[in-house]
């Protein structure tokens, strides 16, 4: 029973896909049924969004700072939401719109939480650095003195 239902569903989806591919082949011969044209436009929009998501992923890998990465991740979220909405109209499945709404909320939450956590970590690190500044500057001075002494010794050895 369930298998039959799944098979029916699969066939329905597949026929729609076949229809849209047939349309692309028939586009030259002057077939202009509005539904088929719209299916082709929806399919093209989804493919275009997939391409843009790939570009955004490349930007999120290249991005020099954490902010650039977060911006491109946010952008990917927006594009995926648009793609899910188009898919729900393309397949005529209304429940995908709910997925879209939930995805929007999760994507927003991700960005806000990551930004908050990273800022908090940075400020904590900065405070610790400020507290240890006196000690650290002393250590740094000692290190610098030792390094300069070593260099002088090396120079002396080379001269000898």
């Amino acid at each position: 029973m369930i298998k039959e239902m799944i098979m029916n569903k699969w066939l329905l989806t597949n026929t729609r896909l076949i229809m849209s591919t047939e349309l692309i082949s028939k586009a030259g011969s002057g077939v202009m049924a509005p539904e088929l044209v719209m299916n082709a436009i929806l399919m093209g929009c989804m493919l275009f969004l997939a391409l843009l998501v790939i570009v955004a992923v490349i930007r999120s890998i290249l991005g020099p700072g954490i902010t650039d990465r977060l911006i491109s991740v946010n952008m990917i979220g927006t594009m995926v939401i648009a793609a899910i909405a188009i898919l729900s109209i393309f397949l005529k499945e209304d429940y995908l719109v709910d997925v879209c709404l939930v995805y929007a909320m999760v994507s927003f939450l991700t960005v806000v939480v990551l930004a908050k956590v990273y800022t908090g970590n940075y400020m904590k690190k900065k405070e610790i650095c400020d507290e240890d500044d006196v000690v650290q500057s002393g250590l740094r001075r000692q290190e610098a003195l030792e390094v300069s002494r070593r260099r002088e010794k090396k120079k002396g050895k080379e001269e000898k």
């Binding site: 954490i66 902010t67 977060l70 911006i71 946010n74 927006t78 939401i81 909405a85 719109v97 879209c100 709404l101 929007a104 909320m105 927003f108 960005v111 806000v112 930004a115 908050k116 990273y118 800022t119």
Partner: peptide, 19 residues
Amino acid sequence: VVVFFWLASPVAAHMLARL
């Protein structure tokens, strides 16, 4: 979805700018 995004997107952008 559009209304939610118009409310949420400026907030996210503000958080990113502050970061």
